[in-house]
């Protein structure tokens, strides 16, 4: 079954309260045929465990890596993924869309 955004945010709160470093990644803009709409989110903890999604599985790996940086630094990041970025990021969206993902630390 799909992970509900509700479960994702509850997990973010629970992980944070359990002493984990936690980051929240949220799709803030989409162009073209993006797989998940704005507001879709992925929550990541400092184990690298994650719940939810910001794409159809295409860029989650890269977002998790960035999220671990954000947990360490506390500074939010705005990431962009798309066809044009394939060489830059080594990942792209096979659907041909572009998405912008905001990654922030929980408890920052």
């Amino acid at each position: 079954m799909l992970n509900r955004d509700q479960d994702i945010l509850q997990a973010a709160e629970d992980w944070q309260k359990a002493g984990h470093g936690v980051a929240l990644a949220t799709v803030v803009e989409t162009w073209g045929s993006a797989p998940r709409p704005a507001g879709s989110s992925l929550v990541i903890n400092d184990d690298g465990t994650f719940l939810g999604s910001v794409s159809g599985g295409c860029v989650e790996g890269a977002v998790v890596t960035e999220a671990l940086d954000v947990i360490a630094s506390g500074q939010p990041k705005l990431l962009e993924f798309g066809v044009a970025d394939e060489t830059a990021w080594q990942v792209g969206l096979s659907c041909g869309g572009t998405i912008r993902v905001y990654v922030e630390k929980v408890g920052a």
Partner: peptide, 10 residues
């Protein structure tokens, strides 16, 4: 996101 914001949102 502040923990207080997240808690209030949940």
């Amino acid at each position: 996101m502040k923990l207080s914001t997240l808690t209030e949102l949940n």
